[in-house]
Design a protein around this nucleic acid. Sequence first.
RNA 1: GGGCCUGUAGCUCAGGUGGUUAGAGCGCUACACUGAUAAUGUAGAGGUCCGUGGUUCGAGUCCACGCAGGCCCA
Length: 1124
Amino acid sequence: MKTYNEFKQVNYPKIGEDVLQYWKDNQIFEKSIANRDGAETFTFFEGPPSANGTPGIHHVMARTLKDIFCRYKTLQGYQVKRKGGWDTHGLPVELQVEKELGITKEDIGKKISVEEYNKKCKETVMRFKNEWDDLTEKIGYWVDLDDPYITFDSNYIETLWHLLKKFYDKGLLYKGYTIQPFSPAAGTGLSSHELNQPGTYKDVKDTSITAQFKLKDENNTYILAWTTTPWTLPSNSALAIGENLDYVKVKTFNPYTYEACQVILAKARMNAYLNPKAKDLKIEDYSAGDKLIPFEVIEEFKGKDMLGWEYEQLFPIEALALPHPAFTVVSGDYVTTEDGTGIVHLAKAFGADDFRTLVQNNVPGVFVKDEQGNEIPVVDRQGKFIPVVGEYLAAKMKEHGITAHKEYGVSDFYVKNYTEDDENAADYKNTDVIISIILKNENKAFKVEKYEHSYPHCWRTDKPVLYYPLESWFIKTTAYKDRLVELNKTINWKPEATGTGRFGNWLENLVDWNLSRSRFWGTPLPIWRTEDGSEEKCIGSIADLQTEIEKSVAKGFMEKSPYEGKELDLHRPYVDDVILVSEKGEKMFREPDLIDVWFDSGAMPYAQWHYPFENQDVFKANYPADYIAEGVDQTRGWFFTLHAIAVMLFDSVAFKNVIANGLVLDKNGNKMSKRLGNAVDPFKTLKEYGPDAVRWYMLSNANPWDNLKFNLDGVTEVQRRFFGTLQNTYNFFALYANLDEFVYEQSKAVAVSERAELDQWIISKLQSLIAEVEGAMDNYDATKATRAIMNFTVDQLSNWYVRLARKRFWRGEMNTDKQAAYETLYECLLSLTQLMSSFSPFYSDWMYQNLSKSAADGKESVHLTDWKMANNALINTDLEESMELAQTISSLVHSLRKKEKVKVRQPLQRILIPILKEKTKAQIEHLAELIKSEVNIKDIEFIDDASGILVKNVKPNLPVLGKKLGPKMRFVVAAINGWGQSEIAEIEREGKIAVEVDGETLELLLEEVLITSQDIPGWSVASDLGVTVALDVTISEELKQEGVARDLVNRIQNLRKDMGLEVQDKINISLEDSFDLVNASIENYGDYIQSETQALNLTLVKELDDSTNLEMDDFEIAVKVEKA
RNA sequence: GGGCCUGUAGCUCAGGUGGUUAGAGCGCUACACUGAUAAUGUAGAGGUCCGUGGUUCGAGUCCACGCAGGCCCA
């Protein structure tokens, strides 16, 4: 019976399927967790995917990355609970439903009830759960799929409410506004998605104004700022410059009033405002009305020099006056000199950039109070100026005698001009034009012109949109900015730059978290308000809600609870039916907003356990996460919301280690998309290549945080080069182990110290590998780990150890040396299965079981084993260095043989190795036998200084010399390069030497140069890595005979194979007596030939019948081989 | 427009703190081996280290400015 299964061919996909079935049948995953009951926990958080689309190949990457560290830590003895999860709310789901139903947001509540709509969303969102689960299993991502958290679940939402209430109680949840695209014609805000509809951006001609903002402390000096929305000028409260841009102050004249003035603008924009043809004209020669206006630069400065400059309000409307630091110059990182004046006018209410910049600089915006005392902008929701501004403009029209198609009342100043009747009137003037005329007349406009640009329009009304402040609920993240930054520094980011750069910068420029979404399918905001907004209540649990409902029913605001006799569903529309009662006895209605879905996922550490309502212990043992991984695109999404909630509510990080992985692109580096047809189907790929090779390829090919150019050829290569080589190595072991009936038994194994050098070496290498893999994995660097394993397997174990040790396996009966060889190879293979198991969980388990099913301590699965740490006592650095020397020397001899055209089978007498260090000599001698047999030579001779034939080379030791010499380096280097043998001898003898440089004498020390030996006169030499080898190519008669003997062995072995003999079959050989050389060879090496070919007899005969002709290098010889 | 990442051989990637002639695998070419054989070994060809400036005795490596591709945000 065979102990170790032998495989002619391996079917990797089938191994994946079989092992998956085995895991299921034997509950290996469950056992891997139950096994570690009571052990220290290692916590992983699953970033929930959305199952409303099918998974792609990039999910294989993401899920593999998540899986490997959990498996690794499990082996190391930690208990790693892994709860799966689903992200179920949000816009993509809504859009998909709308597309399928052929409706728009407009239709919700009309053509379809909110109830039906949300029901449809709920069905849609889990549509592809089965595909996801299937993929998850097939790629071997171990995660609990039976009990996942689902963000639409009532328990989940209850935790969200609990957290929101905590924010609320801390005073961190507030109602403010944010600048959003708004359609005054439709009276509604527009989502960025709506703005991205085709056709929304149209080319329009608007009146643009370059306005003059008068500096406070200087006469006739103005800052110029350009705008395509003149109606925002009354709301101006600051000007932004680029700190590093160059600005000029220019003496010139206003082109409309001809008044002398000094204007400030970006140097790079002068040509746009000041006619270059006028550059030679003199200021004094100008008279009002001249076409060419002279100008003269009188000062130049940087933008940062302008910071804090004060100017006078452009429209001095009393009700709009503001305190300092309004009307000052601030810095804006987005300011350019591509258009305008290089100075940007800021109106807080009407631009998102403006808003952000002003908030960051603590500059107030232009607002007025309404009856409730709320701040409102000077443009109302119909898109017209409120009377405060209207009055001013109407008065100015009169003052300046501006007439239009009609007389303007205080409420007629629409800023975006959508009353078509007016627009078509003959003498029509829009608000922008009126503002232009006023400013021109008042010496406040430097340039007015029509400007054609692309401007967004409402897709429904076709009217231009405004950027307008809309009410929103916010979390005051800015209050915790410092703590967020501080705690972020304790997180281990892979790659580091994502943590310090992308995420760190984001935290530095933090704005408050806008929680509000005006949608239907999502977590409702648990805040109820009275109609006048004077009282509000935040609900933190279902129990709270029930209590409040009861109060309200008692008060008579509701007949009965909307939930009476129904399943409790916190979603809209049910929750909207809840009317509560305020402290003062007023009716309270829920704020209709839903919350940002990122809050859903960022709260998963708590909500997945329904904390604090349940599972407090589980939560505490699994918080914060030791490790998470997600795409780098989540930096401002999930990574941020996890961090924000954890820091603000728990003063903790949410995760200690994080990998932000890159994208999976197609093999040409293009983004994969279903539309372009270059998307790789994960299921097909897994079916064809099996999960292990795909995982291994993804991890080893590039760092996970770099983008991966996914190429199936790469998967094939990994399969062939790595898995194929490993499989060959295993097959080799199994074949001979079974023949010898070898069975590994740890207790009876030969002590490592008693094994052959080669065994000790590979064991040492193996321990070094384990240490390297541990180091890499502890640092969350899977690429390094996989590459190290690959290198060991292919280069060290297969191409060196097995090749050199081959004969020990097939020759003779079982003895200690042979047993040691088996044990060594077995131990390497078994260790490899564990090292590999995190990355290629199926194949490694399969091989583990093949190797260990006969072992006394064999486990059901490699994934249930305990990590075998590196044994430092078995690491022999000296031996590893020796072997490296041996490998280098062998390689050099091979290349010399090739150069001299002497094949390896022809024995040669000796090689010469020049030796400058005793240690090197000892290290080579240590493995002399091995080198000799590997390259088929009889002797290694060393030549040292005493021989007197060494030719040495000298090189400067640059890092050492550089520090000492600095700029004189190149002279000294030139001097050293010109040295001959006598100088080298001198510095070696004296330990120092004098060098003349530039008339100066310097002393060089022995350690400042590197001496090597590269030449032996009259010999064919080769060198590499500081080792030089010379080969003696003289072939004596004796060597020739031995060469023939080896050739004969080789030819007879081929014959054996052709005859189909088994390895252990014995033979008889008859050779034709025809060549003296052959006869002599048989005379002297007959025993060798017989033992190698397992021949009982080797006879020379005069004539052979039924013989075969053997083709030797220079002749042919007849031979007859018979099975004995 | 801003932040961040990437750019090294035909392809995929390595290249601590700057150091003489920039490496590996695959692919290609030639040869060898033939008891791991649908394997394996050896050698060879193949480079403007994205560009331009700068710092330095010395730059793939450090700095500045660009170019190309990507991600996120406006």
